[in-house]
Design a protein around this nucleic acid. Sequence first.
DNA 1: ATGAAAGCGCTAACAT
DNA 2: ATGTTAGCGCTTTCAT
Lengths: 342, 342
Amino acid sequence: MATIGDVARHAGVAASTVSYVLSGKRSISPETRQRVQASVDALGYRPNASARALASHRSNVLALVIPLRAGMHVPVMMQFATAVVTSARRYDHDVLLLTADEGATGLERVQQSALVDAVVVMDIELHDERVPLLRALDLPSILIGFPLDAEGLTCIDLDFVRAAELCVDHLAGLGHQRIGLLGTPSAVYERQTGFAHRTREGFRAAVARHGIHGLETPCEPAHEAVMATVEQLLREEPELTGLVVQNEPIIGPLLDVLRSLGRRVPEDMSVLAICADDVAEGQRPRLSSVAIPAEEIGQQAVELLISKLDGLAPPAGTLVPAVLTARASSGPAPQLDRSTTA
Amino acid sequence: MATIGDVARHAGVAASTVSYVLSGKRSISPETRQRVQASVDALGYRPNASARALASHRSNVLALVIPLRAGMHVPVMMQFATAVVTSARRYDHDVLLLTADEGATGLERVQQSALVDAVVVMDIELHDERVPLLRALDLPSILIGFPLDAEGLTCIDLDFVRAAELCVDHLAGLGHQRIGLLGTPSAVYERQTGFAHRTREGFRAAVARHGIHGLETPCEPAHEAVMATVEQLLREEPELTGLVVQNEPIIGPLLDVLRSLGRRVPEDMSVLAICADDVAEGQRPRLSSVAIPAEEIGQQAVELLISKLDGLAPPAGTLVPAVLTARASSGPAPQLDRSTTA
DNA sequence: ATGAAAGCGCTAACAT
DNA sequence: ATGTTAGCGCTTTCAT
């Protein structure tokens, strides 16, 4: 491997000049720049990452803490992760993978060994144990998700409160009076995961505001569980005509279950999902949904982090606006013939 | 952050002694060792990763190339990834995430900048473009999957040929005469992904050996596609009584489709899956299956890689044995009343 | 069994 | 606009 010294000799300049040509941190005459660039190309020079990090106190590596906890939906996680890696590369950074089970220890370790410059933390709980650590650690960070107390931290997430509200507003606008929230697996609520709680919050508030009736239930991702949960919901509220689903893996089974129960979508039952657009469009009927823009959030997360590394002070909280797309799964509330016979 | 010099001063020894205590690369008197260890603990010393890498020519970081290509099943990928990270940590290594879309460039980059010591490459195609590069690059590597020409490379994977054989043997042993292989999305075959091709190979060979009739088809992961594919299969072969599935996301829909077509599992149709055990057990009926031991493969991959870094020459190819677990979805071939009426 | 000292390859003052 | 030089914090000879 060629070193910066080799390049300098080849170009007939000082090593520092090569460094400055590469970093652009001071002005270089066009001729010198060209000569150096030619030598770099000729030798196939690539700076040694460790040497650079040691001298500059910057590793150009971000840590990504990926949780793999019970009830999490993996494909969505991976969309975030991919977006983070892709965006990081655009800013000349690489991404180190930290699993959540190494937990707080892992964060401390990578910080103290100066392995990474900053960290992206996913799957934030309302009372996340990593939050105090992050505040103490002097490691620039961005949380994808909001803890209850976000003081001093930079966070970004979809506006889940608004997402739920949009769903309820949409259903209420279509005349639905009794609707349900089919949520994440219960483990997710028990961990007090931010997005699930905030969705529930928004659902409650909107239902109250519209003066309509709202039921909430978690749901495990298995066909049987979906069946049981839907039946339970219909037992509690036979006149249920609308469903908001925040649980990607059960979407398919849910539609099957409704079919097998003889409830047509959207004629008898309107279904709204909070899920990735491609998932919504892959269903039959195509689901009206509020999208989870993982790509956009991951990208913005990296941009916020980079701006912190550049010494800027980005906004502490970024709520990505929720957008509802009406498709084929939601329609006017049915006239409740059923109510007279039930 | 404390440096090795701080620790040395605190313990009253030379920096090199601290280094040797930490690395165990030369013998140290028990007293010195203790004193140094105490100072390390007292100061909370953690070696600077860049300095260490620069001096030792070892970054203690592995790269993991994760593909996110069309048709891939994400949760399985993540199981591999998690196993790799967890195992790497056990050998005091971290893992850098490389997405496949950076492709060969990414491998070259991390190698030339000495960012990583070695690389784990997933989702190998029969004629993988990264294979010649890997051979040229002088970067220790392990492939999870076998290219057609694995000369000079270290590979590991489940024995998919055997996995398919086991499934066919099982069905043939139960008297099934006409069976189908419901495979991955066609994009996966078109890319000539190793595991999909090898499964097909094994299926063909076993079917021929048993002198029974075998149908093969790819299948896209959407309810409608599953329905269409199954109907097509039954049209071609009305007396089909056994199905081997290598396509995790369609397992749920497949069972629904069979139900809606009035085919009971396993009375009318035996279903065998090649998938993770928990997926097989999460279905109703529980699926007879050949497990994909992602955990084990990921772990072994890292161990092989570490042994290479230690200068050993591990076996070039490791085929993890396929194991079939019979559960509730497979049974004796039905007496074909249907054949007389069809 | 331990110390001293020379780098590893780069960046960033500090020159001029 | 460019060169000189002093580190960054560690590992590893080379000494003893």
